[in-house]
């Protein structure tokens, strides 16, 4: 009887040890599973992000292709702009005011054509002192030669003259032989 009790005690002790040995094995298995899952999730996230970036890039490229008019060979582009001008204060007659305002509006329209065709050079400069903006400056500059621009419509209302001008730019204007 004594031996049987002792045997049962030994068995129980051995089973206890066996549990202790197996338990760590189980935890490693679960740890490995978490790591794999984490890696898989990270991979999936990266893949989704890459797909999203690719889609955005392709969308941007398509949009740019749609928006940007390219001047192809034997083709032309029609540009239309509106220029605004104001008459000086010291004019001697309404007719002179109109003529001078129109001249200023034409210059503005020429500027707009130049900006559309050649682009604008922009310089910006901000001065910050003690976390406060002291001076903010933006300078723009454009230079071009404009030929064959036509006045389409002129309106003069309340001292403001608006001139609509158009220009047709063909490939041959820019082609170099």
């Amino acid at each position: 009887m004594k031996y049987s009790i002792l045997f049962a005690l030994l068995l129980s002790i051995s089973s206890l040890f066996a549990d202790e040995i197996i338990k760590p094995a189980d935890t490693t298995v679960t740890q490995q599973t978490y790591a794999e899952m984490l890696a898989q999730a990270q991979a999936q996230a990266a893949q989704i992000q890459a797909e999203k970036d690719e889609r955005l890039a392709s969308e941007a490229a398509t949009a740019a292709q749609k928006e940007e008019e390219v001047l192809k060979k034997n083709s032309s582009i029609h540009l239309s702009v509106v220029g605004q001008g104001v008459a000086p204060m010291n004019t001697i007659s309404p007719a002179q005011a109109y003529a001078l305002a129109k001249r200023a509006a034409i210059a503005d329209a020429y500027r707009a054509i130049a900006e559309k065709v050649k682009g604008v050079r922009i310089d910006g400069e901000d001065t910050i002192k003690n976390m406060m903006v002291q001076r903010s400056t933006i300078r723009t500059y454009v230079q071009a030669m404009v030929r064959n621009a036509n006045v389409v419509e002129t309106t003069f209302k309340e001292g403001l003259c608006e001139v609509e001008m158009e220009i047709v730019i063909s490939h041959s204007d820019f082609a170099r032989y």
């Binding site: 130049a114 001076r135 400056t137 300078r139 500059y141 404009v146 030929r147």
Partner: peptide, 20 residues
Amino acid sequence: IEYIHELGLHVEHKESTVNL
């Protein structure tokens, strides 16, 4: 003057914005 405009003019535009 309109005829001269049609011949072509050189445009130079400068613009500066200081403190709005």
